[in-house]
């Protein structure tokens, strides 16, 4: 389980963030409050990615399998962070 959590950490954060945002858009509609909630969720998503990355760095140098796992996970975090920022843009623009 731990390995899967590490491998998929960033992507899971992205998924949580995306579905929360969709839920806001679908069920709460567009208002200043929902825009605020989107930005708050985005900040927490990025923070979660940062924490995961910080905890991952020391793991990235311990044996072949562990190193591979850490590199894939770090890539996932990078993708996740970028996608989360993009996801927040609709609340800022328009």
């Amino acid at each position: 389980m731990r390995t899967w959590a590490i491998l998929l950490g960033g992507l899971l954060v992205w998924a949580g963030h995306f579905f929360a945002l969709y839920g806001i858009g679908e069920f709460a509609g567009e208002s200043a409050a929902s825009r605020g909630a989107v930005l708050l969720l985005t900040a927490s998503g990025l923070a979660a990615d940062a924490v995961l990355a910080w905890r991952l760095l020391p793991l990235s140098r311990a044996g072949e399998f562990m190193r591979w796992r850490a590199r894939v996970a770090l890539g996932g975090l990078a993708l996740s962070a970028l996608a989360i920022v993009w996801q927040a843009l609709p609340a800022l623009i328009g």
Binding site: G25, E30, V38, Q87, P90, A91
Partner: peptide, 8 residues
């Protein structure tokens, strides 16, 4: 759909 949702 409203613009913010399409934006997501």
């Amino acid at each position: 759909m409203p613009p913010m949702t399409t934006g997501f």
